[in-house]
């Protein structure tokens, strides 16, 4: 009796919402067409791919490449370096939020618009130029950073020679580049705040600080959590180009990450199977991470990605 009504209920609900299903049908179709169909190629990670045999004809080797990766002598160091860079990056997470809050509280004048434009512009600086400028700024002899430091009485150093500074440099330059860009989503969220709520708060005698703390921040919280979750879901994937450009002989202990390793064994060496396996490994870790964190988030903050 109960199962029947469940199915009936389900069918009823589906027919009720048929328009919604229609709206989401085409997005799902395009995703299927352009993303899911090629997914069959993922099995390259489990096969010894040879172009003359094609993907289906290549020999099945199971977990060979995963095991090979985990057994690589520098595996743990690579993982640590990758995680270290990611976790440091997470520390910069609050800054775009803070900037958005500050900007939001300003009157919409020229100064505000100019500030937004300027903070948003670094996002267009390419990674190559960013790293070039960074290395120049940190140059022991002619870098602007050291010049200012000596003016303030400090001693000029070769900062890039210090391995443990690799992650901070990576992260701070990332913050510079993305601060304004990342604050946009929070500005948008705040702008959608119901005006009635603000009026009510004013009537209740709240000053600006109260409004910020009791109105804006709760409104922003779900967005912040979702952005944080999405960020955590990329934790194990640190991009290749920037690390590679900031790497030098003396900081290799800290700057060898998974993506630079994949680049070394990459396309010219023709080890697609191995590099696909490593990519899959990264994704798996990311999925595990995001599932666990999302569960916590659902329990604690009632916000979930699904």
């Amino acid at each position: 009796m109960s199962t029947l009504s469940k199915r009936v209920r389900f069918k009823k609900a589906m027919s009720r919402h048929w328009q919604l299903y229609l709206l989401v049908f085409f997005p799902m179709l395009t995703v299927f067409l352009f993303h899911y169909i090629p997914l069959w190629g993922l099995q390259i990670a489990f096969r010894k791919y040879q172009s003359n045999k094609g993907i289906w004809g290549s020999q099945w080797v199971g977990l060979k490449y995963f095991i090979q990766f985990v057994n690589y002598p520098n595996f743990f160091q690579m993982m640590w370096n990758t995680l270290r860079v990611s976790l440091y990056s997470l520390l910069t997470f609050p800054f775009p939020v803070i900037l958005a809050i500050l900007l939001n509280d300003m009157k919409d004048n020229f100064f505000k618009r100019a500030a937004q434009m300027i903070t948003y512009a670094p996002h267009f600086i390419s990674t190559v130029v960013l790293c070039s400028m960074t290395l120049m700024f940190l140059n022991r002899e002619s870098g602007a950073f050291n010049t200012i430091l000596t003016l303030l009485g400090g001693k000029a150093q070769d900062w890039m020679a210090r391995p443990y500074l690799f992650a901070p440099v990576y992260v701070i330059t990332g913050l510079w580049q993305n601060l304004g860009w990342n604050s946009i989503i929070y500005l948008a969220a705040m702008s959608s705040l119901s005006p009635e709520l603000l009026d009510a708060a004013h009537v209740d005698g709240a000053n600006r600080f109260h409004i910020l703390w009791y109105v804006y921040i709760p409104h922003l919280m779900p967005t912040i959590i979702v952005m944080l979750l999405l960020r955590m879901g990329q934790l194990v994937s640190v991009g290749f180009e920037k690390v590679f450009l900031l790497q030098n002989t003396l900081n290799l202990d800290y700057s060898t990450v998974i993506s630079t390793y994949v680049y070394q064994i990459g396309m010219i060496k023709g080890q697609y199977s191995y590099s696909t396996a490593i990519g899959l490994f990264e994704s798996l870790l990311n999925i595990i991470l995001i599932v666990s964190l999302n569960t916590i988030s659902r329990k604690v903050a009632e916000t979930s990605l699904w």
Binding site: S132, L135, N139, R140, D158, A161, N248, T249
Partner: peptide
Amino acid sequence: DYYTLDIDT
């Protein structure tokens, strides 16, 4: 800075 100098410098 032989080991850390960047190309442009």
